[in-house]
Simulated scan of single mutants.
Amino acid sequence: MTGFSEKRPEFQRMINDAKAGRIDTIITKSISRFARNTVTLLRVVREFKDIGVGVLFEENNIYNMSSEGEMMLAVLASFAQEEGRSMSENNKWACRKKFERGELMINTTRFMGYDKDENGNLVINEAEAAIVRRIFDMYLSGIGTHCIAKALNEEGITTVTGSAWHASTIRGMLTNEKYKGDSLLQKYYTPENMRNTVKNNGQVT
Rank of each mutant, 00 (worst) to 15 (best):
G21T: 01
D50L: 04
A94C: 01
T25I: 11
Y188D: 00
I15L: 15
S67D: 15
A130I: 06
Y188W: 06
I135S: 04
I170S: 03
Y139V: 03
L41D: 06
R33M: 05
F99P: 00
S183I: 08
R22W: 08
T109S: 13
T25E: 14
A149P: 06
L56D: 14
L140H: 14
Y63W: 11
K98S: 09
E154I: 01
F48E: 04
N16P: 00
D137H: 10
K49P: 08
Y139R: 14
M14H: 03
E58V: 11
N153S: 01
G156S: 10
K178S: 03
I148D: 12
V160M: 05
S67R: 06
A130V: 10
K180L: 07
T2N: 13
L41N: 11
I135R: 03
I170T: 07
S163L: 08
I106S: 06
S183C: 12
Y179G: 05
R101N: 13
T161V: 13
I124E: 13
A77G: 13
W93E: 03
K116Q: 15
L76D: 04
N121Q: 14
I27N: 07
I124S: 07
T169V: 08
N60H: 14
S86R: 11
K49T: 13
V160K: 14
N61K: 12
Q81C: 04
N90R: 15
N91A: 08
V75R: 01
E89G: 00
F79N: 09
N107A: 07
D117L: 03
T175K: 12
I170E: 01
L42C: 04
Y189N: 09
R171M: 07
G69N: 01
D117C: 06
M194H: 13
S5R: 09
L41G: 02
E59Y: 02
N91C: 05
Q12L: 15
L152M: 01
W93K: 06
M71A: 12
M112N: 04
L41W: 03
E103T: 07
